[in-house]
Simulated assay, not measured.
Amino acid sequence: MEWLSGIAIFMQAADTRSFSEAGRNLGISSSAVGKSVSRLEERLGVRLFHRSTRSITLTAEGSLFVERCRRILCEAEAAELELSQTQQAPKGRLRISLPLVGMLIMPALTAFMHRYPAIELDVDFSDRLVDVIDEGFDVVMRTGEPTDSRLMSRPLGSYRLQLVASPGYLASQGSPDVPADLAHHVCLQHKFPSTGKFEAWPLARGEDAPEWTLPASMVCNTTGALMDVAIAGLGIACLPDFMVRQAIERGELVSVLDAHVEHQGTFRLLWPSSKHLAPKLRVFIDFMVETLFAQRAVAQTNAWG
């Protein structure tokens, strides 16, 4: 503790460039600050400050040491806060943004609300790419790799895209054997609301295969509507496996071209980078990591068992 106290005194002196001002901030005399710094220099075997009658300035070694010490103090503060927060029940308002995939998220979200009734959820369901910091979100769930260095992230689980159609549609229109056959089918395409671009169907194509473009028989910016249209027998859609699993089990949809689909996606939680996580945010992140795809894994295990 004496060692940590010496670092804290050194940091005050480094920030204020004055033993007197550092002493006033810490409630000790300037001579006590000077003696503490001298003991630290003796221990380290280097001079940390250039001293004059009017001011002090960091030496090269002092500048290097101050950056290390800043990290040490931040970690100490984080540890103290973390321990103090273990005695506090998570509560307060949590503003979150979630994609429009309720069949995946809602079971975990309602279970979280039962476990933490003191946390008030302000939920924005949207597939648009929100600005987490500028729009004031505590945490968002999205797919893909994080690109904003201001954000922290944790992966939740993986999914894959599947091409599906109803048995009635395939009986009347035939089942495609290779991706090129889709040119003669009714394709139901998803358009990203944030960019207006079509979501690419992840179909493998050989090196010598000719270029081809999918017909856009229907375009929609919500995947839920595309699934309803596919179940109604009106075309082939490309949808996440967690969305179509139950419809396939009920016989409402059939997966096609599985051998030609190459896709693996990841859901992630993203939140503003900070030294400390509020208890309400920490428990939300931990709960979603533990619960969201665990429910899906149990369902799959039961189906395979």
Rank of each mutant, 00 (worst) to 15 (best):
G157L: 06
T16L: 11
P210L: 06
T291S: 13
D208C: 10
R17S: 14
E120K: 12
E67K: 15
L151A: 02
P210T: 08
L203N: 05
Q162K: 13
L281P: 02
H184A: 10
R128L: 03
A204D: 11
H260A: 15
L257E: 11
P107W: 07
I236D: 05
T301E: 13
K91E: 14
I285T: 08
L98C: 10
A8E: 15
A232P: 02
T291V: 05
R39I: 07
W271F: 09
I56M: 10
C220V: 13
Q295W: 09
A14M: 01
E61R: 14
L83Q: 12
E41V: 03
C69S: 15
A209Y: 01
A13T: 12
G102I: 01
L100E: 14
H114L: 10
F192C: 02
T301N: 10
N25R: 15
F198I: 14
R43F: 13
F284I: 04
S52I: 05
I248D: 01
A165H: 01
D258C: 09
I7L: 15
G23M: 06
F65C: 06
G92C: 11
I72E: 13
R205I: 05
L203K: 09
D134T: 07
T16Q: 12
M218K: 09
I105F: 09
H184F: 06
G265P: 02
L26V: 10
A78D: 11
A180V: 08
M1L: 12
S63E: 15
S149L: 04
G92K: 12
A22Q: 03
G136M: 05
G206M: 03
A14Q: 03
A22H: 03
A209W: 02
